[in-house]
Design a binder for these strands. Structure first.
Length: 109
DNA sequence: ACCCTGACTTATT
DNA sequence: CAATAAGCCAGGG
């Protein structure tokens, strides 16, 4: 898609900003939509660089297993789960969510 | 250019 | 379902 990378983070954040409330996307999905098909890890970095006062819904990004990919015992981890549940996302087994049901897919995969 | 790291992923045990 | 191993890609030292 893009031949240049003016700012990879911005592209990634822009994609994340498209995820609607009540839905989630995997790092892989975001990467693909940003034109980085196999660089899911890069997405994680971008989110980590995201300022806390940002309006980007970073909490709507989870891993391919439908689990929060933030290190345990971190505040952000709680924050993410709280926000997701507040949007109607339900966790099963108290740790993973149903991707089949909440995954956001504007295009194909 | 080389090596290590990581909010990842998929396949295998 | 949890633990491992092997891929993958971009950053940073």
């Amino acid at each position: 898609m893009y031949k240049h990378d003016p700012d990879l983070n911005q592209r990634i954040w822009q994609v994340v900003a498209l995820i609607p409330s009540g839905k989630v996307a995997t790092y892989g999905d975001v990467a693909q939509h940003a034109g980085l098909a196999k660089a899911a890890r890069r997405v994680g970095l971008a989110l980590r660089q995201l300022p806390q006062d940002s309006k980007i819904p970073w909490h709507r990004v989870v891993n391919a297993q439908g689990r929060i990919s933030l290190p345990n015992s971190t505040v952000s981890q709680y924050t993410q789960r709280e926000r997701l549940e507040a949007e109607g996302i339900v966790f099963q087994g108290n740790k993973s969510l149903d991707l089949e049901k909440f995954r956001w897919e504007p295009g194909v995969r």
